[in-house]
Design a protein around this nucleic acid. Structure first.
Lengths: 66, 66
DNA sequence: CCAGGTGTCAACAAATATGATGACACATTT
DNA sequence: AAATGTGTCATCATATTTGTTGACACCTGG
């Protein structure tokens, strides 16, 4: 499940033409935190998802469409 | 944010006519865990949200529409 | 009245996410 | 060749979620 979510984040990030580092910067997060998220090795919290969605300029619901 | 999410869970749970205890049972969770979620005192993980959504027979995206 | 359901709250141990730092291989650019 | 950007991985300390137990007040049905 985290795997699917990770793939979705990768997709949305690349759609914006961003690198992990760029998304991390906009999220005010660590580059490695984003990488873990995308690889699906963690089970992120709702707030983390909210921060990522905000950075990607989409809603939480849209981020979770997978 | 957790507050809004909690209110949404309450709404969807009551739409099914369930008590917190009933939702907890379907989720295989503790009654108190559901209660904390609904009150917004925790920042749940994606997997927890997935379990709740499954119990409510909706998608994650639908649960997060708020 | 009283037993049971309900929502709420507190505290604890265990598991886990997060932020941080450092490292590595690979590709691209200068 | 050297420097930089990229994605990946590991480790550590700290914060937080989660499961659990116990408790309380309130209400309703028997």
């Amino acid at each position: 499940m985290s795997r699917k979510l990770g793939k979705r984040i990768v997709l949305l990030r690349e759609k914006k033409g961003w690198s992990q580092a760029e998304l991390a910067r906009v999220c005010l997060k660590d580059r490695q935190s984003i990488e873990r998220l995308e690889r699906g090795t963690t089970n992120p919290t709702a707030y983390t998802l909210y921060e990522v969605a905000s950075a990607l300029e989409i809603t939480l619901a849209e981020l979770l469409k997978f």
